[in-house]
Design a protein around this nucleic acid. Structure first.
Lengths: 337, 337
DNA sequence: ACTTGGCACTCGGGAACACAGAGTGCCAAG
DNA sequence: CTTGGCACTCTGTGTTCCCGAGTGCCAAGT
């Protein structure tokens, strides 16, 4: 019973603090929530909560503020993801429906998420690792130049210009293209190296230099993009919020692909809805911010992750609801294409 | 003589204000620059400059600050673009040299420019309007689905998934692809509609529905991207600066493609190095910011524009130098590919 | 054993105030 | 036209003071 009430107090503190952005005191709590006890009792509970590290006071004789640990408890045990209103669902659906290609999907998603949560949205491009080859194309551009295009089943297109050793022979290129497609069609990107390993051997000697050049570019393009592309939107939403750490650090972190990547989480379970609160996240420049992320992707294979970044003091139930919903819709869209 | 000195005073004010970020007074001017006259004289000049609207005082008994009009005069007549140090040139060159494709070029450019100027860099993707068709590809994805890929001479790739009315027939697709390439190869994007207008007529009746579908997608993809893609980087550099207008407005503007587009300038002369100072720019959310932009592109055809956005109080000679230099290098890189 | 009202205490934030210093405009002399 | 002198006007800063919110603790009540 007693413990139960302390948790109720913690929940009330988090909720009030999130909505007012001011340290919350015992009297205010007693007034706004009907906890059925007096301020004095609440004070006792708060003292214990503070002792256990769930809340803290900015200075003596100020109200209490949740600590990272407090938010963690709140997220884990005291709140439940808030589903979106049907109007919001409608909006998501129609906003995403018009996307024409994978870039467009990602772009729309990130903007949608930013607008929905009024925070910074981050979306990772679908990972190549889990996708398969749809088509390989070789396009002669000029005498000694080829364009190499790789199309995956997720609609992603990788392109490279290749400088070739000899003057391009249309015949040979066509042949090579046919062979490549035969070898690679439907093959997972991770197994591409295996599949093409013996390809030069199967060619007449005079074609091998060309093939080798092309293959090296092909392989390189796979490795190269292993550090995936990430985009963000909604930086303007940071302007209002005040972080414990400078706004500058946050913006800097956002422009670092590597940092973003790690923020979205190296979770073992890609599909999980994960929350990183303040100091839990691996990057020192981002104390005072939390990340809510979820995996998305078609079918049972998770392709990548998306999420939002905002001040630690955020409305977790709502944010989590939005992130989860968007992840689901994007998955749907991708599955359909 | 007299007028000459007033200009020198204005220049000194701009330079001092830019470097100190504090209103500059007559005494400070006399000390720091050897104008050879006394503070009192300078005061007289300043009074006249103020009367003519080139400078203003934030409040009585504070130093003077340049107005937008003052900066304009400074840029037009009192300064000259400062060339980059050779170290900087080296850095630019090596930073841009490693780019693998057009996306990479743009990405590197925008980051480079942001870092170089310590401001927000903005780069427009090379315009399709001036580019020509290199290759059109049609790739069957599934029974009723085609992927359409358009490759331009700037290395840009447009892609669309097409839902087709009938089951795809490899033969027909191949034929159509051949015809498309024959009609369009090397043709400017603007003239694409003309070139394909009569294409359905030249086909057997049973192919026309398919052709029509593909053509409509083709044409749409041209129109669709006419509002070009623009990227920015270096938002973190805004964090330090204080604008007359809220930081939020600036960040919001940066995320609006349309706004960015207009900021880069609808100049008749794409290649010019243009400067928009404070209130001169068309967007009310961006009072207090200036834009320095230049065109870039290979050969004599300007492809697009790039630039930086920063507080009105910026070091124009240096910024202009950096923008011009980067524009030139990017042009070089693009010309070479 | 827990809850509650009372009470003294602490501390941050805002209002009132004074003051130094930078900078100005103007004037009369050079 | 320039210059030094001088009175004046501000802003920004530092100081002081005080109110009020909020706390911790204690003793009394259930």
């Amino acid at each position: 019973m007693v413990d139960d009430r302390k948790l109720a107090v913690l929940r009330a503190i988090v909720e009030d603090y999130v909505s007012t952005n001011e340290p919350v005191g015992s009297k205010a709590l007693a007034d706004r929530h009907n906890l059925g006890v007096s301020p004095a009792t609440i004070r006792n509970d708060m003292a214990m909560l503070e002792e256990q590290g769930y809340i803290a006071q900015p200075h003596t004789s100020a109200g209490r503020v949740p600590t990272d640990k407090g938010y963690r408890l709140f997220v884990d045990r005291l709140s439940q993801v808030k589903p979106l209103s049907s109007a919001e669902r409608k909006a998501i659906e129609s906003f995403l429906a018009g996307a024409v290609d994978i870039d467009d999907v990602v772009m729309r998603t990130v903007r949608l998420l930013a607008q929905l949560t009024r925070q910074v949205a981050v979306v990772q491009y679908p990972t190549l690792t889990h996708s398969t080859v749809r088509h390989v194309e070789l396009v002669p551009l000029s005498e000694r130049r080829l364009m190499f295009v790789l199309i995956t089943n997720t609609g992603r297109v990788e392109q490279r210009v290749i400088e070739v050793p000899d003057v391009v022979d249309e015949q040979r290129v066509a042949h090579l293209r046919a062979m490549l497609n035969a070898s690679l069609d439907g093959c997972g990107l991770t197994s591409v190296p295996d599949r093409v390993a013996d390809l030069p051997e199967r060619l007449p000697a005079e074609d091998r230099p060309l093939a080798a050049t092309i293959l090296s570019v092909l392989l390189e393009s796979l490795v190269d993009r292993h550090d995936e592309k990430i985009v963000f939107a909604g930086a303007a939403n940071l302007a209002g919020a005040d972080f414990t750490v400078g706004l500058r650090d946050v913006l800097e972190a956002l422009e670092e692909q590597v940092v973003l990547m790690r923020l979205l989480g190296e979770t073992s379970d890609l599909s999980a809805l994960t929350v990183r609160i303040g100091s839990e996240n691996p990057y020192t420049g981002l104390q005072g911010t939390s990340i809510v992320a979820a995996g998305y992707g078609s079918g049972d294979k998770q392709l990548a992750r998306l999420g939002v970044l905002g001040p630690t003091r955020m409305d977790y139930p709502v944010t989590m609801g939005a992130v989860r919903a968007v992840a689901r819709y994007v998955s749907q869209i991708l599955a359909a294409s």
